[in-house]
Design a protein around this nucleic acid. Sequence first.
DNA 1: CGGCCAGTTGACGGACCTCAACTGTAGTGG
DNA 2: CCACTACAGTTGAGGTCCGTCAACTGGCCG
Lengths: 252, 252
Amino acid sequence: MHGIRSRCEICPVRNCGLCASLDDQALLALSKFSRRKTLKPHEVIFHEGDISSHYFSVMAGAIKLVKNLADGHQHIIGLIYSPGFAGQCLNSHHTYSAEAATEVELCSYSREPFDIFEKAHPELEHKIFEITVRELDTCRDWMLLLGRKCSYERVAGFLLMMADRLFETGAASPNKNYAHFQLPFTRLEIADYLGLTLETVSRQFSLLKQEKIIALPSSRDVVIADLQLLGAIANIETCSNSVRFDETRLSA
Amino acid sequence: MHGIRSRCEICPVRNCGLCASLDDQALLALSKFSRRKTLKPHEVIFHEGDISSHYFSVMAGAIKLVKNLADGHQHIIGLIYSPGFAGQCLNSHHTYSAEAATEVELCSYSREPFDIFEKAHPELEHKIFEITVRELDTCRDWMLLLGRKCSYERVAGFLLMMADRLFETGAASPNKNYAHFQLPFTRLEIADYLGLTLETVSRQFSLLKQEKIIALPSSRDVVIADLQLLGAIANIETCSNSVRFDETRLSA
DNA sequence: CGGCCAGTTGACGGACCTCAACTGTAGTGG
DNA sequence: CCACTACAGTTGAGGTCCGTCAACTGGCCG
């Protein structure tokens, strides 16, 4: 019991995740049906179609939400970073899969006791509600990207999102015009997130590099040299309106 | 006072919308800062960037959520039918616009009193939470459509969604293999919803018609002749894998 | 009748996908 | 140490789906 208690006290997301809404006493009760897990990249957390038996808090790292297609391709419909929450709240079955995108630390909660606990703690449900609303907002932004933007803009949007992560976590200063980070994804994963192929993603990386908007010391090592310009590209309204340097021009 | 009370009592969504979570007394309190509105198609409910001052219940008809692009194009990121809910719950400003898709009856609530009221009525927040979770689910399905499906599949998916509406509202029997309904949207609106152009939408309608999967007595009057087949097309995993009849084949 | 708008259909070009060859890096084993 | 494999990533060639532009049809209304 004491062990559980102290486990939560040193939790990295005690004050910013789900649990931030709970006092110590409630947290202790919650911890009784929670379990900590560490996963390696690509380990499956739950699978599309499975019965939803647990909820998950992301304490460190990131997980990806995936819809699988019959031909082996997949589409990534969401990324959840720490502090984050995943799980099917109303359905009995999962409508998508989840797997570790990086090395991940999770806190898993058995669904039934959690649901009961949640009813007794409206502040917890409110917290999950907040998370869901934000998720819906980013999901709708992504719909615009998938529905209306060309590959160049999509990749720019993706890199911008990655850079924003740095600022959110305080790992970089938002008023600077550059950013530097390690990509935790392969070109294929990025493609599956952007609705493109890995070749197209690679080409757009190369273009951005040639335009000196980014630099690639190695393929996973991204330096954004001009964040403002990248932002302008990502928000360009239509592809044809944008003045951009494509392969035909470069080869001319 | 009595007028307001009786107004809610005859409300078509009293027992299925937001208010279904409330007893008569709470409903009376809510009605004090609510107002009923009727809008014609294309009337704007709120605009992207505006301060969010109201929430809305959709009592009859449908509204569309829209992101506008600089070039005059727009992308429809969601449709909300009765009974439904719209409004920006956490942000101070709207991140998208909303307008009447059909003739619409709304119930609008001033945001500040509603937020206070909601805190005192967890069952209301729970209801909104439920609606948000479902919205997120359909949003993620739509991401798959936008990211991975070809125009033929998208249009099939759209028509299927329209048909599902009939079954949900009880206007048709779900075990039948056909459906018949009036489209409340122009080809352009459908295109803006599917991330296509109106010409492409029109072509796919024509293809489906030639395949005798649908019939079009008039352009807005859709008869789905083979719902199962339409469903199979909509869920086809990749475009290239699908055996479908395209223009090249038809012209051969 | 003419004007207007929604919708259809055709011709053409371009962006992206497919297939394929190649490079670079890391790991394994002789 | 080098050969060999395996895999991520890059780059090229060619084809196709869909967007663009344009002409045409049909219904509606003054």
